[in-house]
Amino acid sequence: MECILEGEIVGILACSNNRRRAMTVDKPSLKQAFGFLKGNLAYDSLDKEFNAPLPFEDETGYIECVATSERARGKGVSTALFKHVMQELPYRNYILEVVDTNSTAIRLYKKLGFEEFKRKREKLSRLKGFKERIYLQWIKG
């Protein structure tokens, strides 16, 4: 799903399910972009994150990615994308993951009605710049 403003894409939201991922990585593209060695290393580190099947029931949509261009932030783009997806897609339950340092996103998700159900401490948190992954869900009423 994308949001277009004045002919420019200013926001995206990717929603996956247990049968198909919205965002995948493939080795040939990574090797072409980064070279043989770095492409293979990138694929090996990203494969499980982006290509593995999701362990959710059929009624669950997984919000895999949300992004808004800098010039469109604060103008309701992400809110509009979420509302459209939550109304139009057939899922009863939506799950997403956010890192603890992304307070702007956490506020948005809670405003939309998402509730925290799990936290997972991150290994190598100093290198990654965050301590925990926070899992939130929204269930259609």
Rank of each mutant, 00 (worst) to 15 (best):
W138D: 00
A52I: 05
E59A: 11
L46M: 15
Y94R: 00
K123L: 13
L96M: 13
I12F: 06
E49I: 15
M86D: 05
T24F: 03
E132T: 02
D58M: 07
P53I: 12
E49Y: 10
R107L: 07
H84L: 12
F56Y: 15
A42M: 13
P55K: 09
K140V: 03
A52V: 04
K31Q: 12
C65A: 09
R73S: 04
I12E: 04
N93I: 12
L89C: 06
S78Y: 05
G76E: 11
P55L: 08
L89W: 14
R126M: 07
K118E: 12
L136R: 04
I95W: 01
F114P: 00
E57N: 09
I95M: 10
A22Q: 04
A22D: 02
G39K: 09
E70I: 12
R121V: 02
R71A: 14
G39D: 07
K140L: 08
Q87P: 00
R133H: 11
D58L: 06
R119K: 15
D44L: 13
L37S: 05
R21D: 01
K111L: 10
K83H: 14
P90S: 14
E70A: 11
A80R: 12
D100G: 10
N18I: 02
L81N: 04
L136Q: 05
Q87Y: 05
E97L: 09
K111P: 01
A52P: 01
K27H: 02
D100L: 07
T60L: 06
K120N: 09
P90C: 10
C15G: 01
W138F: 13
P55Y: 04
K123H: 10
G61W: 12
F36I: 02
R73L: 06
A72H: 08
M86R: 11
V66H: 02
F130M: 03
L112K: 11
L41G: 00
V66E: 01
T79P: 00
V77W: 01
I134D: 02
L112C: 05
L54Q: 01
K131V: 00
F117M: 04
R119A: 09
E97D: 03
F117S: 06
R107T: 14
Q137A: 01
V77D: 00
W138H: 04
L54M: 08
Q32M: 08
C15M: 12
A14Y: 10
T68S: 15
L112Q: 09
A14E: 09
C65P: 00
E49K: 15
D100A: 08
